[in-house]
Structures are given as C-alpha cells and as structure tokens.
Design a protein around this nucleic acid. Structure first.
Lengths: 246, 246
DNA sequence: TCAAAAGTGTTTGTACTACACCCATGG
DNA sequence: CCATGGGTGTAGTACAAACACTTTTGA
C-alpha cells in the first residue's frame, strides 16, 4: 500500500486564466468597520459610543461603525466613519483585528474589522450628537449591541499592551501636563496604582519630558510643574526589542 | 449664528425594524483566509508556501489560502484550509489582521484575514504536495503573488514579538532538545546573536526546562544535554504585565 | 591532535521596589 | 491651620550584559 504521490509538474497545466471569474465564484459577505475610540477625562478611561439604530438593540450602545464601501480601503473606511460620526479628522487609527462570527449581527452574516485609537477628549469636542454620540466610562459599560462588548474588551486589552510599548498616552493629555495627570492616565488605562516617586523617576530617566518652567494654575493645592512631551526624542529612541522576556 | 443641536430623543422614532434588509443593502465582498505557517529546520526559519494557481502569477508562491464559506467562522476557515492544503489538524492558529487593499487581488476586490502559526517541521511531515506545497527559507523569499510578501513581513514581525512573550518556540523543537537547538531557534527567529552563557542562565532561571538526563547522539562534537519543556509550569506562570516599558 | 561545540562564574551596571517626610497652595 | 497633592532620596534586590577558559567528543 503506497501513498499516491502527486508530482508538482502535473499541475502546471491547471493554471487559472480568469482571475475575475474565480473571485466571482467566492461567497460574498457584507463588511463593516467599527472604531473603538478611547479617551481620557477626569482620571477615567472613556470610550465613544452611540445608540444603536436597530430596533432589536433598542437602548443599547454600539461602537462607531458602518459598512465599507466598494473599493474602499479598510483604513480609509475607518477614517471616513470616524469623521462622519464625530467630525474628527486628526486621529490615528490602528487596526486591531477582524471579528467574523456568523451570528454576530442579527441581520445576517457581517464581518467587521475593529479599529482603535486613544485621544484627548478635551481636544476633540463632539460637534455631532447623532445617535446620542457620547463618552462612556469604560469601567461601567452595560450590555452593548452585537458583539461589541467582546470587541471593546479585546481592544481594551490591546490598548493596555500597546501603551506600555509606545507613549500613546501623550495623545490623551493637554500639550502641557503635570506628572500627576500623566500618572492618572497610566493608572486609569492599566487599572493599577503606581508609586508616585517611582513613576516620576521612570519618566525622568527616560528623558522624554520637557520641563517648560510653568506651573499649574487654579488648583486647590500646591501647583505642580508642567511638561511637554518630547516627540522628537521619542522618535529617535523607539524601543529595540532584543531580550527574551516571557 | 448658533449651532444646530439635534436632540437625541428625536432619533428614537428612526429605529430600523428590519436588520436583514439593512445588511442586504451593504456592499458585499469576497473573503479569504491566508495562513502563514512558520517552521524551523536546520537552524533556519521557514514558511509553508504553494505555487499560485493563477496564470498571472505563474511561478510565484502564495500563502495557504482559500475563500471563507457561507456562515463559516473565520477561525474555522483557517483550520479547514490548513487541513485541506497540508493535512495538518493539530496546529494552533492565531489571527493576525485583515488585509483589504482594493487592488490586492487581480480578480477584483478580496479581503483576506491572515492567520499565523509556528510549528515543528519534523513533527508535521507534508503528505500533500498539491501546488508544490513546500517549506521555504524566510530569509530568501522571492517575489510572491498578491500582497503576500507584505502579509509575510507583517506576520513575521508579529511572530518575533510574540515569541518574546510566549514560549512558542518549543513547538518548533523536538520533544527532547539541546540548549544549542533552543538558542539557534531564538537567534533564527529574532535575527540576532545571543550570548551562550547568558542565554543558558536565562532559561535556567526560568525553570521551564526539565533535564531528562540524556545526551545528544551522533553529533560530530561533544554532545549536549537534552531537555524537555515544562508545559505545566509555563501555564501557571504566564506573564503578568505591569510595568511601563517603552 | 584538531575542530567544534558544551559547559561554566564573576563582575558591573542598570532598573525596579518599597518606603516617609516636608513643602506650597487655596480655602 | 487644615487639606490636598507636590516634590524628593535611599537601600535592597533582581536582572542583563560583557567576557574566556576548560572539557568532551568524533574525525
């Protein structure tokens, strides 16, 4: 009993001439993009949500999503949708992953690609309020429409990991910020409390903060120094990963 | 000149009753999955590729891919395709991300979702040779079909990062392996050279290796000790990320 | 006896942790 | 004068990096 061996060369005769025909034979599915836009305000991590348009999800919230158009890049769709829903057009979005469970949408199969960002709420006033667009505290999210809770959980974990590798955090703060604000930010996103002295030392040693020689104003306690983020320096020193570190 | 303010309540009248109709109004796109299966052999990182079926890509290689079926989970499609193409059914696949450039496929728009894995070539003999399925050294890849070079690059970077957080590497080695083999593996995947003593110390301190009190056989030099990986121990100690570490 | 890789320890620097007190401001 | 958070230093520990010689085996 020998195994049948198919010689590669035999296959050269089978090349497909018409790629268009091939693609047309594939099943097609509706494709959407959902944006998980995180922001930071009052020492809390928040996320932008709207009310679902669908009756079956009446009262529930969803991420900012919509269909991808014909011949539209996924990234472009994400930026377009964000712009349409919020008016924002100066936000960086990163693709997180695709979600494709066949029953995730009550209207039939829809694949969605999740995008994620993190931004400074005070720099991005909401000018559009359709579908009750608003910021929601991540810690108290209720039931959401579709599988959006799962997507939020995944994006949040993705974000926690990412903020430890890249100083995304600075997008969340005013141009000038105090170390306390910076620490609040990290504590909010990572869900931990950090030692103040060690935190300050850590950032001091990274030398990514520029002391602008100004102080906080109108705070009901001793004012802290204000800093700016040194973007230039960061760009030069992007982390080199070499170690092995499970 | 005041801004027009749309009160949220106005929208409650607009709820969509028919989710199916809504979804049917979306553009639909063909959806595929592509698997980037990395393996390790002769101290080199390799990847499983097949020859493209398409005439326009005659002679070029592609990842293991195919369409996603109606109502098929993305993960399930990836496992099915891997099984169909290679016969393997005991491999873990992770989704990496979606690629959706409108012109990435000559037959029209096709979205693909990339999956990635890493395995032990010697534990997975290739029993199917359709489309010249074979292992290719990652370092010498030539031009590939579609955007598969981009996908490979992305998956490779993804893998390098991932192997530093999880000991995927052990899937690539025989059950019993020497420290030299382990080090070769890390050097091959990370593309760096590592100090032998420090490497050994690192793994010794992690206590993830079981000394099985056997030696290499038939090597043209002093034989090294053989070890097994302590999977149990690893499962208990999965890394907790807490620090901030750009 | 040679080639090739195995095996091994120390030192040095860096980075993280834990921890407590005084200071500046507004109310 | 009180409450609130700002600002600071040290000691201990753990980890990473650099670095060279002896040993074992097969050819």
């Amino acid at each position: 009993m020998t195994k049948k061996y198919v010689h590669p060369v035999l296959h050269e005769a089978h090349l497909i001439k018409d790629a268009v025909e091939l693609v047309q034979s594939y099943p097609k599915v509706p494709l959407t993009v959902d944006c998980a836009i995180f922001g930071f305000e009052e020492s809390k991590l928040k996320i932008l949500l709207i009310k679902s348009d669908l009756e079956v999800f009446e009262g529930r919230y969803t991420l900012l999503g919509d269909m991808v158009r014909d011949n539209e890049e996924l990234d472009a769709a994400a930026y377009r949708i964000l712009k349409e829903r919020t008016g924002m057009n100066d936000v960086f979005l990163d693709q997180v992953r695709a979600f494709g469970h066949p029953n995730r949408h009550p209207g039939g199969r829809v694949i969605t690609v999740a995008y994620c960002s993190l931004l400074n709420i005070n720099h991005h006033e909401l000018k559009i309020h359709d579908n009750e667009l608003n910021w929601h505290t991540v810690a108290n999210l209720n039931e959401m429409a579709f599988d959006h809770m799962e997507i939020v959980d995944y994006c949040y974990a993705w974000l926690q990991k990412r903020i430890q590798e890249h100083p995304l955090g600075f997008n969340l703060l005013p141009e000038k910020f105090s170390l306390r604000e910076l620490q609040n930010l990290y504590e909010a996103i990572l869900g931990v409390t950090l030692d103040r002295r060690n935190f300050r030392k850590k950032f001091a040693s990274m030398d990514l903060l520029i002391d602008i020689d100004e102080m906080e104003q109108d705070v009901p306690h001793r004012p802290g120094k204000l800093y700016k983020f040194n973007f230039e320096k960061y760009e030069k020193n992007k982390r080199k990963w070499v170690g092995i570190d499970f």
